[in-house]
Design a protein around this nucleic acid. Structure first.
Lengths: 201, 201, 201, 201
DNA sequence: CATGAATGAGGCTTCATTCAT
DNA sequence: CATGAATGAAGCCTCATTCAT
């Protein structure tokens, strides 16, 4: 069993300020290119150029291109987890339908906010070896949502959390991608499906 | 306006039996590689090798790699349309919830049947120029589902058809991908969401 | 010493009418493609298609692509030789300046008539192994012009014939290629150079 | 309007010494191959091999094969222009026939010096999209020669410059190509034609 | 550490030619 | 003999990665 079975991670977590800035510049350049040019535009040389560093420096911070993608994915998942954790705390004590509505809007907001970067990264993730960190974050998200549902007496809360997550994303992404900008109307339609799933009339 | 604005199509339809076999072998090889190795594994040389033909033969029938992908997409969409059209005829005259349940099961069956090829192809489709044929088929599918919904008095039937399609796919794909094999249980969960969306308790 | 050192010739001179027609059709298709699409457009498959025969048949008549080009070159040279021979007979007995003027106009006419095919073929000829037949024809042409010049007391008639041929072609081709359509004016300018070369005021 | 309408130029001008050496090595290798093997021998892989660099390095400096050819053409034209400009200055104030004789010898010298590279490149140039730089140089050359002729009262100096250039090249190239090494004798024969064209007995 | 020149495996595609039917 | 399906060497080019300076 070699380590190549896992998504490579950054070579070193930079301590010094300048190094940290370079590191971030590379990630931001990669994210920008991914958003505007798609996966095929994401080349290491272009990332380095946009980040304002040499290709050699890029490889000082990331052992491979996949390591950059892996880090972008982890970043995105962490953001998502933080948003959901915050949201879960916020809705604590409120009725289930209120909680669901808030989560739906949070998901839409998150997607709009990441400007579709999520789509591309999810696609890329599928062709990368599984990354324990990313898995852990996903589990954390599922645990949080499941905990919320359990409090309201939903049965099989883990499965329900899984289904609801997919339901919301599955409906929101295509709609947003097709140019829909009436977020509230979209959210209401998703609400109906989600609440229907939960047996809430 | 150049032809490169469209998904290339096969350059010639084979006449002789041997040619037809070659043509099919290429498409099947491509589908197989796509399913098992993902998009990055789909190289023209590998497709030719797996199809048991020379690279030259491949280019007798397809002007480019994208033409192969385009044809796979069209094939898949045509199958989907045929399934949905048949299903729509079958449920004609039955109540809405019956129709929905049948459609959900048809979608799951279709995905299982195509062995997840749909996922990869949909992603590839996004990076290809729009193909009139494929668009036409999509419109046809939407029209069929929308027609069905309209008969039952659903408002905004086109939008509802769009949402429901995404809902079903969005829930079914991840579940099936995660190894879920209890299709009927999955279908029931999706039913709840779909009927909830439609306001059917 | 192998035969590959020479421009390949047609495999067989066809006797039957239909075969002869096919043979000509191939040559004409090749000439047409050369004129309209340039050397890079001249592919054996395209020639066969335009000639209305299968690629297999094409190789029945010509052992290789170069054999087709070689035959086109020979054809063109033969035409040129015939034109020059006829012209030489025609100007026989007239003064040198009259003869020169006629030859100049004949050269221009020939180039216009062949629609620039001559240019392309000459370029292709340079990259083909030398062909005895073509050489022989060139010698014949030179002999004819030289004979004409000798009659008028020109010294070193072979050399003069060589120089004059190049002078006329060298001036006419670029002018015609640049879109000049006033053939008579062009001819007069060439006359001055040619007569100057010959020491005729 | 795409960039493919123009002859591609080198993608980056090398800064470091090693880079400059590589850049030059590539151009020299290309020139050598062109002289000895003709256009069909000019493959990117062979150029890289002969230059002693990897194919990747070649594409660091030239975006395409045509860019290499384009640069060779520009180089040659620049040399030609410099030679002609120098010559024009040199003959300034001298009589027309002296000027013509010097230009003829300069042209022959130039052709010998470039070892016939000019022939092949001119042919290749015809199959490339027009290059503004090259056009500009050509115009400059014509302007220089025309200016010279105008000073001596030649009518239609632009046209005369065009004709004379073609006359000299048209006579010199085939003669030199056929193995003629008596440059002075050749020059004298060309003189007669050129002076005849200009009406100088 | 930073730089950027250099590398080369490997991807896509063309086209002259062969050969089974 | 005709057909056209099949072949595969060879060409162009990209891009992740290495390494000398």
């Amino acid at each position: 069993m070699t380590h190549s079975d896992f998504v490579p991670k950054p070579k070193k977590t930079p301590r010094q300020a300048r190094a940290r800035a370079t590191y971030q510049a590379i990630l931001e350049a990669a994210a920008h290119i991914l958003e505007h040019g798609g996966p095929t535009a994401l080349t290491t040389n272009l990332v380095a150029e946009r980040a304002g560093v040499s290709i050699g420096s890029l490889y000082q911070y990331f052992p491979s291109k996949d390591a950059i993608i892996g880090e972008l994915i982890r970043d995105l998942r962490r953001e998502m987890r933080d948003d959901i954790l915050a949201m879960a705390q916020y809705v604590d004590g409120h009725p289930l339908d209120f909680a669901v509505r808030r989560m739906v809007r949070a998901a839409i907001h998150h997607h709009v906010h990441t400007h579709g970067r999520a789509d591309v990264l999810e696609r890329l993730e599928a062709h990368l070896p599984p990354d324990p960190d990313t898995q852990e974050i996903k589990v954390e998200i599922n645990r949080t949502v499941a905990g919320l549902l359990r409090k309201h007496g939903v049965e099989h809360p883990e499965l329900a959390a899984f289904d609801l997550t997919n339901l919301v994303i599955g409906m929101a992404h295509p709609a947003l991608h097709s140019g829909d900008t009436d977020f509230e109307a979209l959210a209401c339609r998703i609400d109906r499906a989600a609440l229907g799933y939960l047996g809430q009339t």
